[in-house]
């Protein structure tokens, strides 16, 4: 299947979902007016990927800001990977935060608490 690449805007992140390498990246801001509309094509793409995944999947999330309506969409994105993980695929989630940004670190911890999946939280090197 084709990779999904979305260019960043002032209110949406850069998204790069590579089905061949299994490396998925979300980076930047997520404060769109309607988060559900924005994330919908990503959900649809992921549903397809989960049915024929790469042997190993790495999800890198590096948000600068996200609003509370995006927070639910981000959780739903991560839940797709939990499903993949539960079906026996190798899945790793990597959450990055800027040095000193305790709020973003905490946000990663919140997701890690909710989801039962290998979850790394690290400062941006």
């Amino acid at each position: 299947m084709e990779s999904l690449v979305l260019q960043p805007t002032a209110h949406t992140p850069s998204v790069s979902l590579n089905s061949e390498s299994g490396v998925f990246e979300f980076k930047g801001r997520s404060t769109p007016e309607n988060s559900v509309d924005y994330y919908d094509p990503i959900f649809k793409w992921l549903d397809q990927y989960v049915s024929s995944p790469s042997p190993k999947t790495v999800v890198k999330l590096q948000f600068e800001y996200f609003n509370t309506s995006s927070s639910k969409c981000i959780l739903d994105v991560l839940k797709k990977f939990v499903k993949l993980h539960n079906s026996g695929s190798e899945v790793k989630i990597q959450w990055y935060y800027e040095a000193e940004d305790d709020d973003m670190k905490e946000a990663g911890e919140d997701y890690s608490d909710i989801l039962e999946i290998p979850f790394e939280i690290q400062e941006i090197p």
Binding site: N34, V36, T68, S69, S71, K72, C73, L75, D110, I114
Partner: peptide
């Protein structure tokens, strides 16, 4: 975050 249904606009 984990339990509630969001409205169409994505607010909860």
């Amino acid at each position: 975050l984990n339990n509630e249904q969001f409205s169409e606009k994505g607010t909860a």
